[in-house]
Write a protein that binds this DNA or RNA. Structure first.
Lengths: 261, 261
DNA sequence: GTAATAGTGTCTGTGAGACATTATGGC
DNA sequence: GCCATAATGTCTCACAGACACTATTAC
């Protein structure tokens, strides 16, 4: 414990004499909710636990924070280990999107003892099925959010629910929906992200007008893409530099459950 | 470390043999950004550090998380110790408002070693000056957000900045502005919260119309309050049950610095 | 009476919802 | 030709911004 008379020392002397391990310490993990869209459904990347506790149950990719790395770095590292995708923080134009979600630390959330989890949420483009193969040895796979049920280990079900609410709210005012699609993309594909995340239909013409009116949301490539089965060619776009949608795209009132399509 | 062959045990056997302390652990603190409004300015509750490190610098009230308490409980406890105010979580009709903000865990943010901080933000009513006297022995006081400068210990300046952005954004779509005023209050007082938090003028008539049109934002008491120096008596209100303002009250575009009035 | 503040009524402009129409391809 | 999809144009309605006007008090 710090001595009561530490005021009489210099700061250097204090630090030399200080032992932080006298304080209660806990294990800290970083868990990442990797969200994507596959076949018109919002999916989350999960691993099947190969060890106790919760052997055989689903869990979020994650792990303990190394002594010398920041929380953000740990999240990026875990994401890379599980998906093989290089991430950059908070809206870099490369890689994928990842940001801190919330911290979960109820005593008893982990039967092994006091472990608090700093949760992150990541948005990655429609996965080619072999994306998970780029990860580590654990069997990572995508599962749809509608059949989560009670199959999660720890409190990971609550963490996923918080991530879903985050993405549903955030695409209203931020341009992050672009991280769910591969470049180049059509306006219809981008609209599909909103429809899947919200579980509601979005008016096609009004959506296109809004996206094009938002400076820097998307940038036209000049190329077009031919819809399968005929139809007028659709213009192709890339993600633009804008971070904020002003005014926002309001989400229609939904009566869905939080895990519904 | 967990044994590689732990699959062969039962879960109970595994847990009995398990020692979490084999994993790297860190110290975890909870720091609370207590915001209020005093004399038309947004103020934050700070304590002056009486110990190394950062002796004499300003810091947020906070402390280590006890082994058996949740993060939320720790934040409520710290708030009560510093302000004497009993808090309830996330929009209870009693006490004050407090919610988790974000977690700060860069290595090197604390010279004593690896310490991560789970930050909370609380909104409390206009403090009577003796509020801090209800706190513990440390000299807690309110300081205006416009002269924060470099006087904060650790990374607490960044934590405060995040809290300010949280409140500026949150009063747009949530009814939390009511937690900054004492009941009963007038619409003009509630409008003053928005003006102070945003650092921008809000149109009085349009604001009153919007608040009254939002079911459950405020509830009229039937009483009135006489403005000093004359004027029509203002109706008095209490906080209503609604949590969300739908559609939101949009914040006017501001060019201010994040710490400006 | 005047000044000050609160509350009511109304016009207007922006922007989203809805839908008709045109454009461009496969078949 | 028909069908499917994308893009364009336009009408309407909700709602916020602005402002005129009325109401109630202190002085």
């Amino acid at each position: 414990m710090p001595k009561r008379d530490n005021v009489e020392m210099t700061e250097a002397e204090f630090l030399a004499a200080y032992d932080l391990s006298d304080y209660p310490t806990v294990a800290v993990t970083v868990d990442v909710v990797v969200l994507s869209i596959l076949d018109g459904e919002l999916v989350v990347l999960v691993v099947e636990r190969a060890e106790h506790p919760y052997l055989g149950r689903l869990a979020l990719p994650g792990g303990f924070v190394a002594p010398d790395e920041s929380l953000d770095s740990a999240a990026v590292r875990e994401l890379a280990e599980e998906t093989g995708v290089a991430a950059h923080l908070d809206g870099d134009t490369d890689g994928v999107f990842i940001e801190q979600l919330a911290t979960f630390g109820d005593p008893g959330r982990d039967p092994r003892g006091r472990v608090i989890s700093v949760a992150y949420v990541a948005f990655v483009p429609v996965p080619s099925r072999d994306l998970a193969a780029g990860g580590d040895a654990r069997a990572a796979r995508w599962i749809p959010l509608r059949d989560l049920d009670e199959r999660f280990a720890f409190d990971h079900g609550a963490i996923v629910a918080a991530a879903v609410e985050r993405v549903r709210a955030k695409i209203e005012w931020a341009t992050v929906a672009g991280w769910f699609v591969t470049e180049p993309f059509t306006i219809a594909e981008l609209r599909g992200v909103y429809e899947t995340v919200w579980g509601a239909e979005v008016h096609p013409q009004n959506f296109a007008r809004k996206v094009n009116a938002t400076e820097g949301f998307v940038v036209a490539t000049g190329e077009t893409h031919q819809p399968v089965g005929g139809g007028r060619p659709a213009r192709l776009y890339r993600r633009g530099p804008a971070q904020v949608i002003e005014p926002p795209i309001r989400r229609p009132a939904v009566t869905d459950d939080v895990t519904a399509r």
